[in-house]
Amino acid sequence: MNEKDTSNTSSSNEKNDTPVEKKSLKERSSRGSGKSLKERSSRGSGKSLKERSSRGSSDSSGESSLKSKSSLSSRSSSSRRRGSRKKKPNQIPAGMIVAGLIFLVAILLLNVSPTVSLFWMIGIGFGFILQRGRFCFTASMRDPYLTGSTTLTRAVLIAFAITTVGFAAIKYGYAANGLPMPGMGYVVPISAATIIGSFMFGIGMVIAGGCASGTLMRLGEGFQMQIISLTFFVIGSLWGAHDFGWWKYNVISKGKAIFLPDVFGWMGALTIQLGFIFFLYYVARRYQESN
């Protein structure tokens, strides 16, 4: 019908709107850089870029010969996708039911063993925080190199600082009362094997798209590619467990186990460890600012 007319008006609209939109975009990006993505997108000010792209698709019908191939195909696919967005049923009732079931299982497990019930709740809480907080050990090690952002690196360092204080308090509590300290089985020898092993783990987790907790969390939220990661994560763990005795006897036990409070005393160990973490935090911050 009036295809030519509509294309003309839309393209003239685009010319008129562009500078205004650009200004508003710039304002927004400088103003709202600290805000979360959700906030920004739900605020509704996010129109301009999307509008521009959909307007672009309407004018492409008139000027298709001028546009490049990739832009045409992209337009049709993106506008089709946007058009097919369906109204989804409210998920809150389902969430309530799942939350209720989680507590029900916790209560049932309480009859079996309080410890198992506690593990169940801690595990669910840990997964929930990982998923909602986008906390990712892989990204904390990878992003400084890839994007120059050390936000997650610093989040991990804060977590280390908090656990340092918490574990020191627990262990000191036991030691002060003359009781055997819990968790001393994890004071294991360090050697070059630690460095080589952690480097290998780092390569693996970046390729797999997640470390152990990240893989489980992403599989839980439905990212199916992680099934591959999880499969080989299980195979690798079993293989590792199978051969661990040999490695422990021939390699790991050659190193030296160091428990910092034995060397520096409780306050010294705490000061050194926290000081080192804060030093790394400072370096991470400066690194991000320098980019």
Binding site: K22, L25, K26, S29, S33, L37, R40, S41, G46, S48, L49, K50, R82, Q131, R134, C136, A139, D143, L146, T147, G148, S149, T151, G209, R218, E221, F223, N291
Partner: peptide
């Protein structure tokens, strides 16, 4: 990928581009 949803916009904003997520 929910992490990329956070990662990509953050990276692009750091580069100084205008970014929107839908």
């Amino acid at each position: 990928h929910s992490c990329a949803m956070k990662n990509v916009p953050e990276w692009a904003r750091e580069q100084g581009y205008n970014v929107e997520v839908e």
